[in-house]
Each structure stands twice: as structure tokens, then as C-alpha cells.
Design a protein around this nucleic acid. Sequence first.
DNA 1: GCCTTGATGATACGCTCGTATCATCAAAAG
DNA 2: CTTTTGATGATACGAGCGTATCATCAAGGC
Lengths: 190, 190
Amino acid sequence: MRRRQIGEALLRIASTRGLQSATMREVAAEAGVSLRLVQYYFRTKEELLLAALAYLGEQLTARVSASIRALGPATPRSIVEGTLTAILPTDDESVRLTRAYTGFYTLVFSEPELGERHGATYPDKLESLLARQIAAAQEAGEVAAGVDPALTAAALLALTNGLGSSVLGGQRDGAAARRILDDQLGRVFL
Amino acid sequence: MRRRQIGEALLRIASTRGLQSATMREVAAEAGVSLRLVQYYFRTKEELLLAALAYLGEQLTARVSASIRALGPATPRSIVEGTLTAILPTDDESVRLTRAYTGFYTLVFSEPELGERHGATYPDKLESLLARQIAAAQEAGEVAAGVDPALTAAALLALTNGLGSSVLGGQRDGAAARRILDDQLGRVFL
DNA sequence: GCCTTGATGATACGCTCGTATCATCAAAAG
DNA sequence: CTTTTGATGATACGAGCGTATCATCAAGGC
């Protein structure tokens, strides 16, 4: 559909030139349509941003589940590892997704209404999912008894986000970030 | 001096309304001077941003050393802990600094020239400092032998940055972030 | 066959931005 | 006393932004 085509164009701009370059005119050019058409399908820019954010969410969850599936049978560890490595910007697709996502994340800092209108509980859901898997692994004896699942899940997710920022900032590449994450995962899971 | 007064005004805006609201006119109003005066002391906006970034760096390093000093005698662990907790947005000052810093950090994503003109090796310096302290603690037997100082330093710093983002994003408060960080520190240091 | 309606184009409006220009004025220098 | 120079004010300019307006046109319902 036209809406999707335009929304994807915005995401493409957000992951290359940055979300602040995603003006109505730029989005129209990127999508190969006229400015009028963008306005026709999205009455306001906020509407367009919200739609694009929804598309991004779809792609993100699709990537996470694909990454979990790629790690073989679903064990607590494979779920945790698959989730975190899917988020880490290691290949082209994850770099694109992470770039676009952080663009929206920082945008919400200056336009809090956008976040409210979206219900951005995405990180919280991920975190509780991870905590449940760690708790399950702990019951199965794959995680040391002294580990607090909630604290550890939060730490792993924050670590992954921080590593992602450092990769996007050019401080290290995806492989190095992956090594750091794997090292920490190896300290959580026995 | 006038330059400092104006630069601090920009930082104040960056830490409250966000860096993208720091227009020349807003900075002038915040500093209580005319637009012309801002232009007089900073010929271009980039010059102003660079100067403000330098001021921010000063404040950041000052806070880090104060936080290390506050933890008593300088041991490897107190240095690591002081550095990381100084960065974490737990009180008003650190929230201000972190907000402003992430503002600049994300700005560099869209204007890479700004980062080049500043030599933003700040995170790398912090990371190697932490790695040295962890290695020293390891030699003193305060850190398990199986720990890789470089990987662990990177992980702790990325964790702290990720926690900072989550605090700024309203996902948790500074105290909760502090608990997560302390938990991880307790797993590194015996 | 007309007429409504959804889709598309061209263009304009009002605003804010960074920057530039012109004028003024106090104080220091000669 | 005059002149120079650094500091300050008022205002303008051109560009880009989101949004709005007006016109056109193809297709489907009656």
C-alpha cells in the first residue's frame, strides 16, 4: 500500500541520514511520490512518524523471533541470546534498525507527546521477557543461584543498548560488541 | 566571561528542552543577552556548540574526579565505582550532564563534522582507564582470574551508558539503575 | 450520461532558522 | 578634542519547514 511505501521511505531516511532529515519533502522524494501525496495519506507529520514507528516495531519483533529461531531449539539461554544479539547492530539490517530506533528514541526526549501516543513500553516488555527466561534457566540449574533474574535481565538489556550506541558511534565494530556481550552471557549462564 | 555565560546557557537549554531547541535566539534569551551578542562572541553556531561541548567536558571530568574522591582512598575499585556512578544520572547534576551529553552524542550522528572537529575520544579514554584499574585489582586478587579486564571495562561502561539512557527515557529512576550497576560491580569485584 | 469521490499535481502561506547588515555608543589612545 | 575600536542594538534576508488551498482527472454508482 501507499502508506507503507511512504512509511518505509521515512525509515530508510532515518537509518541513513537521520530522523531529523526526514522532512515531508525528503520522504516524498525518497518514496518517489509528490509532497501532496504524503500529506494525503498522512494528514500531519506526527501521523507519519507514528505509522513509521509501528512499521519499525514490526520489523524489530520479526528480527528478534527470527534470531531466536535461528539458534535452534528454544531454550531459555537461546531465547536470551537470540533476543540480545538480534538487537545488537552487527549486520546491515540490525544497523539500519538500531539507527532508526535510536532516532525515534531520542526524538521522544524532545517531543514527549509522541511517546505517549504510542505507548512505548517496548523495552519493558523485552526486559520482563528476559527476566522470565533467566528465572527459568535458574530453576533448571543453568544459572547460578545467587543471580537476581530481574536485575540481571535489566543489566543485559542495558548492556546491549549501550554496546549498540558505541557501535553506532563508531567506537567499535559489531564483532567487538558481540564478543563483549558473549563474554557477559557466559558469566550469567553456567 | 561572556563566552562562558552564553555557552552555559546553551548547556542549560540542552539539558532541559533538548539540544535541538538550542537555537541562537533561545540561547540569547536564556543567557539574558541579545541575539547580536551571541553572534558577536560566536561567529557561527558550530563555534558555539564546540565551545559548549568543551565546557561540558570540563564539568564531566570534574564530576568524575569529585566522585572518585568522595569514595575515600583511591583503590582500583573505588576508582571504577566512582567513575561509573558519576556518569549514571542519579541526582540533578548528573541528569543535567547526561542529558546534555547524549544531546551532543546524537547530534554527531547527523553532523559528523562536529565530532571530527572535537576529537571525541572521551569514551575511549574512560574505557582504557577502567580497564587499567580492573587489571590492577586483578593483580591484587580483588578480581577473579578468569576476568578479561578490557572486555569487562567495555561492558561496565556500556552498561552504565545503557542504564543512563533508560533513566533519561523514564523507564526507571536513578536509584534502580544504581542497584543494577552495584549488582554487576559486585560480580566483578570479589 | 452525469456526478460523486478518491487520487494526484502545482503552488502558496506563515513561521523559524542561521546569518548578515547597518547604526550607535562608551571608553581608551593619540 | 578627536579618533579608533570593541560592544551592543534593531532589523533584514534567504532558505527550509509543516501545512493549506485550488485545480485536475479517472473510475464507479445511480
